[in-house]
Simulated scan of single mutants.
Amino acid sequence: MATDAHTQLRYLEWQPSYTHTRPYRISTYVGRRRKGKNKAKHQPDEGEGEGEGDNGDEKLPNTNLVFRKSEHAETIHDIRGSVEQFTLDTNGFAYIRCPPPAVTRAWEYSDPKKIEDVFLPECEAILRRGVEGADEVVIFDWKIRKRKSAKERRTRNPNLQGFAKQVHCDTLLTRDEIGTPIMQRIRNHLPEESHHLLSGRVQLINLWRPINAPVEDHPIAVCDGQSLDASKLLETDMIRGAYTGTMLYPLFEPDAKYRWCYMSRQEPEDVLLFKGFDSMQGQVKYTPHTSFIPFISPPSTRPRVSVEVRALVFTHPMEREYT
């Protein structure tokens, strides 16, 4: 039975300073706190709080991003049991039913052998099945999302992150100059294969699934690409140590008519795929998404633990047009 949810989502709010200063966020991963004058502070990741970064004695703001909640409750449509067919090309996202994951406990994701031998091959197989024309799949990032303990916040672990709490579109983080376009980033880091790979279709696909269930704590909402005006997405520089990327945020608009969707009580077998980029003309290019807290939730919810993977999916050249 479908159970639509209602909530207020957080959007990037336009600031007059953006006319002369490009929006940005600087995040750094830190280890245990160091004694002495220049203590390293925990920096917020996507979806965490905002603060300041240390630069010796001089404190510089780590972001000029300002977020605000929607003024009115938004409906997050439950697609469970829906007769409507959602596809990556038409809507920017799709749910596919898969066997349960082989790695089922969060602590197992600290085992590099299991990641390389079991987890990533399983994800690649899902992407090849779920993305039409997936000739080559290059997984470049994965992480566990959960509510982090105080000890976990003090530990350097880029593969363990909190929930993303603002509406956003994912980015490709590489060691390139700020503002480098995604296609150029691929050329820089896959120089031998890039001529062949970039002559066809290129997609950035996010694979998201819970590893405990059902999801009632901070479910994920995805925006139907048919309701998105991509010209209203604002580019934002993301900087993490030596890595840079360009995150996209839909701007806050009081009368925006976004159509939001989710799957109630999502199980590990319910795998969500959604787009971060697509080079093919005439298809949905981006999928804004976020975790959210429904106004009405069960009185006691099991803390959500989920896993997400980001991959470049290449389709060999065909008689189609690419940008």
Rank of each mutant, 00 (worst) to 15 (best):
A5D: 01
H6T: 14
T7L: 00
T7P: 02
Q8I: 10
L9R: 04
R10W: 01
Y11R: 08
W14S: 11
W14Q: 11
S17H: 11
S17M: 10
T19P: 05
T19A: 15
H20Q: 13
T21K: 08
P23M: 03
Y24I: 06
R25M: 01
I26C: 00
I26D: 07
S27K: 05
S27G: 06
S27Y: 08
T28M: 09
Y29D: 03
Y29I: 03
V30K: 00
G31E: 03
R32Y: 14
R32F: 14
R32L: 13
R33K: 15
R34W: 09
R34F: 10
K35E: 14
K37P: 09
N38A: 14
K39M: 15
H42C: 06
Q43G: 02
P44I: 11
E46T: 14
G47W: 06
G47I: 06
G47T: 00
E48K: 11
G53H: 03
D54F: 09
D54Y: 09
D54W: 08
N55C: 15
E58R: 07
K59N: 02
L60F: 00
P61V: 08
N62Y: 07
N64I: 01
N64E: 02
V66E: 05
V66Q: 01
F67E: 04
K69D: 05
E71T: 10
E71I: 11
T75P: 05
I76M: 01
D78H: 00
D78Q: 04
D78T: 01
I79H: 00
S82E: 07
S82F: 03
S82V: 06
S82C: 06
V83L: 13
V83A: 12
E84R: 14
Q85H: 15
F86I: 02
F86D: 00
F86H: 12
T87N: 07
T87A: 01
L88W: 12
L88F: 13
N91S: 12
F93G: 01
A94Y: 02
Y95L: 01
R97M: 05
P99G: 11
P100L: 14
P101T: 04
P101Y: 01
A102Y: 03
A102N: 07
V103N: 05
V103E: 00
V103W: 02
T104W: 07
R105A: 10
R105W: 10
A106V: 09
W107M: 13
W107L: 15
E108T: 02
Y109F: 04
S110C: 12
P112Y: 03
K113Y: 01
